[in-house]
Design a binder for these strands. Structure first.
Lengths: 185, 185
DNA sequence: CACCTCTTGTAGCAACCGCTACATATGCTA
DNA sequence: TAGCATATGTAGCGGTTGCTACAAGAGGTG
């Protein structure tokens, strides 16, 4: 059983990279297998089926995303809403994190059509985001803070829609506006 | 030639509804043909290939979206940024418009991976959005207004990511926060 | 040695994909 | 009436999809 478990790890590592680089559309069994350097036959020996492969690699990606976020801005930073939004927005557009956001976009799009396992992943990651924001706001817990967190999440997630649709400059311009607002307060 | 053109119209009408209801994943030639009530053979008689079908129906959808938006809030409404964001956000989550936004999400996700013809459509619609917002802001033309428009676009588009990932309540909560901010000004 | 589980390869299934070859029916025009 | 462009159906191509049947080597245990 040792070989199998070892291979699962190796495969999941490779697929994390592959999915970040190419997205959900390049994720047929044969493509995944090739990216992981194994045969498709073996991929289905290591994992029960494609859904299990995707669920596990998506879970890893969600972890990676959460880890990077919590390093970027530490918990309890106690930031004003606009300041937090601007800082989070800036981080989210960084070279290192952008691939996560692009993939995240595809996951939510799939979730909007109730495609398993993306609906579950999407819910879980969104909750993580909301919590991450709430814990960094200079606001007392409660519905007001939760509403602000949801608004900031919309703003930050929306930035990559702007980035994809209108280009990096417009996303940067949006952040500049945000920064100006934060300073004016 | 008359029959063919007539059928093209009929087919495009049906496909607009179909895509809004089911999304890009239910858009194989055979599925599109079935939804339009013709054979797949005939679909490729009316249109050169699948790309042409998709491009034309996406163009129609973009038109429909733009038309609904310009009716919802008239041009030159001269709204303060937060007020406009709140009103646009509320409209975008309405029963009638939500399907457009879900589909829009899929289009941008596809565009993020450079899948034709979605990259073009995505750019065009985003530009339309940005212009729509700019023309309804109580701001003089210029980089500041454009930056604000980009920020509002991120906010409004991001609302459907929140809606999909966390549910309608959270999206509504975000709008409530927005409304509170608008009033406080 | 014999057996048994773990691991891997070869080959192929049925379903679907976008698209096309070919025959045929229809109706207008010369 | 003959011919020709338009319109439609039947059948199928080569390719990809997720998945599986089957055989066989490897390695430990009785």
């Amino acid at each position: 059983m040792a070989v199998r478990d070892e291979q699962r790890e190796r495969v999941l590592d490779a697929l994390e990279t592959h999915l970040l680089a190419t997205g959900l559309s390049q994720a047929s069994l044969r493509q995944l297998a090739a990216a992981a350097g194994v045969s498709d036959r073996m991929l289905l020996y290591y994992f029960a089926d494609k859904a299990e492969v995707m669920a596990e690699v998506m879970a890893r990606l969600a972890d990676g995303m959460a880890r990077r976020l919590s390093v970027a801005i530490p918990e309890g930073a106690d930031l004003a809403p606009w300041t937090l939004a601007a800082r989070a927005g800036r981080f989210v557009l960084e070279q290192e994190f952008l691939p996560y956001m692009r993939l995240w976009l595809e996951v939510v799009a799939a979730a909007a059509r109730n495609e398993a396992p993306f609906a579950d992943i999407s819910r879980q990651v969104t909750q993580g985001f909301l919590g991450w924001i709430a814990q960094r706001l200079d606001q007392p817990p409660g519905p007001a803070r939760d509403g602000l967190a949801a608004m900031i999440l919309a703003l930050v997630d929306g930035l990559i829609l702007v980035e994809v649709g209108a280009g990096r400059e417009h996303a940067d311009a949006a952040i500049a506006s945000l920064t100006a607002i934060a300073k004016a307060k």
